[in-house]
């Protein structure tokens, strides 16, 4: 890890303008997990802990992000890389203001949005209703959704194999569902946009469509964050990369440099 130290200090990507859009200042995030205790899981053991007033009985803390600081500027596309569980998605959620920080602060320009509409959608509803529900959940108005409805359906390609949009989502294949989710999420324009592994879904032709859409979104958005395990899509889209490991910022620099160092580390 010592050789990376020198690289970190080197010039970062040339930000088109020096107007910061996102500032993370020593951000720590801790998850509290109930029922993840290491002790015996029986009821008597739990009662025993309760009676003896042991601190934090049954609660385990997961320190997911440990003191990350960076400044993102307008016009940047920033990739986040790191192994599974390194805190990438958690950090994105904190930037979006969705997950409270334990300490430290995140300052943002406008409202950053996470490209993740999955949670609002219901498998028992038709695709049609999910388009409406997902759009409303993202804060679009009903008129905006109606305007873009056809666009969303066409983009997802759901109706290519018959009239699937009027069927409940539980009848969709996993690929179809993922395509519809991405189409709904990408229908809105964003100031600061965060994309979490969204590009890996769908077949080849849908991937091409969605990459083009991300580039479009990036032109509209001030700053784009992209989490991906696909180094090629990081290289294609981003000009700056943050490398997280164990919740710590290991490297922050131009895409080529960081991705090369990351590949060297992971190849071992």
């Amino acid at each position: 890890m010592a050789e990376q130290k020198t690289e970190q200090k080197e010039a970062l990507s040339v930000a088109s303008s020096q107007v910061p859009t996102v500032i993370a200042d020593d951000v720590h995030i801790v998850y509290r997990v109930y029922g993840g205790n290491t002790g015996r899981g029986s009821a008597t053991a739990a009662l025993n802990r309760l009676v003896r007033r042991k601190p934090d009985a049954g609660v385990r803390q997961v320190h997911a992000v440990r003191g990350v600081s960076f400044t993102a500027y307008r016009g940047e596309a920033i990739g986040l890389i790191g192994s599974n569980g390194s805190g990438k998605s958690t950090l994105l959620k904190a930037i979006a203001g969705l997950l409270p920080t334990e300490s430290g602060k995140v300052y943002t320009n406008g409202q950053p949005s996470l490209l993740g509409v999955n949670a609002a959608m219901m498998n028992d509803l038709t695709g049609e209703k999910n388009v409406m529900l997902g759009g409303l959940a993202m804060g679009m108005t009903r008129e905006q959704i109606r305007e873009r409805y056809q666009e969303i359906v066409d983009f997802s390609g759901i109706n290519e194999k018959g009239d699937f949009i009027t069927l409940p989502m539980r009848t969709y294949s996993s690929g179809m569902a993922a395509r519809l989710r991405f189409s709904i999420a990408a229908a809105k324009d964003h100031d600061v946009l965060m994309i979490d592994e969204a590009l890996a879904t769908g077949d080849r032709s849908f991937q091409k469509r969605s990459e083009a859409r991300v580039r479009e979104l990036r032109e509209q958005a001030g700053t784009v964050f992209l989490v991906s395990h696909n180094n090629r899509s990081i290289r294609d889209t981003c000009d700056r990369v943050l490398w997280l490991e164990h919740g710590r910022l290991l490297m922050d620099g131009p895409t080529d440099e960081v991705v090369r160092a990351y590949e060297k580390e992971t190849a071992r």
């Binding site: 890890m1 200090k9 930000a15 020593d26 990350v68 960076f70 400044t71 910022l249 922050d252």
Partner: peptide, 14 residues
């Protein structure tokens, strides 16, 4: 290395 990164990274736009 880690602590250096986290504290310098924020404003290290040299």
């Amino acid at each position: 290395t880690v602590s250096e990164t986290t504290h310098d990274g924020a404003v290290a736009m040299s």
